[in-house]
Nucleic acid binder design. Structure first.
Lengths: 374, 374
DNA sequence: TTGTAAGCGTTATCAG
DNA sequence: CTGATAACGCTTACAA
């Protein structure tokens, strides 16, 4: 059935010119002037035959495949992978490129095989993505091809990387709570010692200190980052003498447990207890009641940034001047309904206005702020 | 920096043979007998140089790219995409193939461009995936390349497709509830008229009827498939005269709303109300308290099945005999803690044993059953 | 303004 | 058993 695809030769024949000419007009080669009439004839012929240049042949000749690889440690169990991939493919498509997606499942051998397959296919570059913010060691085979890290940092130099601005996230969370008038805060942090844990705590503490909170007005505890962990930590926090009026949670899943604890203790959210989460896992943050105000992780934007960097490097030749760029991207705060002023506060300070969903590719400037409907 | 990759020519030189011979030994060409010593020399040379055959050149020559495309309507906003992709890439990798992932965002123009890019790259075949079970119309450009549908059906003949077995899902949900001794059931279905809605209702009703339930022992209402929709429907259901003791929800998100309604009405889950969901959206089903018993959608398995079919077609030449295979895959029921026997029931019937997570690629046979820890 | 021919890295045909 | 050599479909000096 699948009759052989139409080639440049057929187009040439159809247009009554040589294949060289076809190539010239179809590629708009700079120095070459081709008679307008000829051009038209060629274009028509190509269109008539439905000619699509064979990318493999082009790549073989030009040493450029317009193809990049996306290597993820896991692609199925987190909702984040999709956003990074989408960011990557959006900018890829704008350069007529397509992306190979492979998932390693954290297995070195699988990773090696996949890298090999990608290399054999002459990918122009590789995006190496982690599902959670961490430091990685770059597989040595990748040394030969432009590579950019997403949601991960590394010490190999010459490798650009992008991660979320965790500190800013912690600050933003604090600002939301402080802005509403809260003065007794708690932070349920991840037990694991990872960049996100350090960064968010640092930012949160800094703002609390700047706001003049005393040491025992800010409790920090750690927990497993799941509902059970959040529940346990929240019970402890909420039954203590100096009960906080607001809790910042390392992530949304953990926050679910805090909701439960609050409910069990008869505390109403947000009236008796305000909560801010992290991640903006839509089905979670938007599914709990009342909706969870949370800090979004900039996965899509990281995908975009990384891919743009990647193409820069691919096009910029071997190595651009100066060290590789790295950046931390700030995620927007998503306002829902889990934050209110404590009863004794009159003026909760101004509430920020809604803004657009995707406006924040930069890492500096004030945090964009978002209010969801519903 | 990136010195030109090593080619077959260099290997030939290094081994002191012709490139033909190198090709012969590296590919183990059937009819060709090469002296064992020569073989060794070649293999060593290849290894020493770190030779990786250029896949582009191979493809150009053999007309086989060992590359497939995965076209999804959206890849970022659902947790399902990742599983289908993983299924696809797992089988692809086992055939030394890699998969291009593209997302159309439901935009025809984007889809067309992407299809074009894939075709230009000579993909051997295409997986066309929908994020929710529906009937699709196949883009005509795909006629020229082997294609298999995932989570979607179509009428174009010759096109294999795989979808979830919705009817079985409805039956399984009913069985769980009926098995626990419930006799007053409700089903909150999707308002949208989609295959999932029809199928699940059919299966659920069938089993209820088989169990001898009277018509008014099974209420079916419809709602938006989000927490708010579930909440509203549940309030209505639970405040009625003939309050059901168990509710089957079209999906897990909707079930979240049912949890809230139950809590507000002072009904305890599962003691006063049993709930079964659908989808097994991990962070939701596993995040609510108590954990939600639910029917999993077989996304991974659908990805696997489709990709195997795809390779069959690719290898089987133009068209295999007979009509294209299609199938409905059953998802396992995931037992958590949202189902119990109503108080008046003595023996809830036997509870099934835990089983393995991936054992169910087939669509027939009893539903595999899974109990999560925690 | 157009065309010839070399070459990108392989595989496959056909001789030696 | 081994090796020239012609494709595969395209781009690009270089000629005409």
């Amino acid at each position: 059935m699948t009759q052989r695809r139409v080639t440049i030769k057929q187009v040439a024949a159809e247009a009554g010119v040589s294949i060289t000419t076809v190539s010239h007009v179809l590629n708009d080669v700079p120095g070459k002037r081709v008679h307008p009439d000829t051009k038209d004839r060629v274009r028509e012929a190509a269109a008539r035959l439905g000619y699509l240049p064979n990318s493999l042949a082009q790549s073989l000749r030009t040493q450029r495949s317009n193809t990049i690889g996306f290597i993820g440690d896991e692609v199925a169990t987190t909702p984040f992978a999709g956003k990074m991939i989408l960011g990557a493919q959006d900018v890829a498509l704008s350069r007529d490129a397509v992306v190979f997606v492979v998932s390693t499942g954290y297995q070195r051998e699988v990773e090696n095989r996949e890298i090999e397959e990608l290399l054999r296919r002459q990918v122009d570059g590789i995006l190496y993505a982690s599902m959670y913010h961490r430091a990685v060691e770059l597989p040595p085979q990748l040394a030969s091809v432009p590579t950019v890290l997403i949601n991960a940092s590394c010490t190999t130099d010459g490798i650009p990387w992008v991660v979320p601005d965790e500190v800013a996230g912690g600050e933003d969370a604090a600002d939301v709570l402080l802005g509403a008038g809260h003065r007794r805060l708690a932070f349920i942090n991840d037990v694991d010692e990872i960049p996100a844990a350090f960064g968010r705590e640092e930012g949160f503490r800094r703002r609390a200190a700047q706001a003049g909170l005393r040491d025992d007005d800010l409790q920090v505890v750690t927990a497993e980052t799941d509902p059970a962990g959040g529940y346990a930590a929240a019970r402890q926090l909420l039954e203590s003498d100096n009960r906080p009026t607001a809790i910042f949670c390392f992530n949304d899943r953990l926050a679910m447990g805090v909701y439960r604890a609050a409910t069990e203790l008869g505390l109403r959210i947000p009236h008796d207890l305000s909560i801010v989460g992290f991640d903006n896992q839509e089905f979670v943050a938007d599914g709990v009641f009342p909706g969870l105000t949370t800090i979004e992780l900039p996965h899509y934007d990281m995908g975009v940034w990384a891919t743009e960097q990647l193409f820069d490097r691919i096009e910029g030749g071997p190595r651009k001047a100066g060290p590789a760029p790295t950046t931390r991207l700030r995620g927007p705060v998503i306002h829902r309904d889990s934050v209110a002023s404590p009863p004794w506060v009159q003026d909760p300070g101004e509430r920020r206005e809604p803004s657009d969903r995707r406006g924040n590719a930069g890492s500096d400037g004030a945090a964009p702020t978002i209010r969801t409907n519903k």
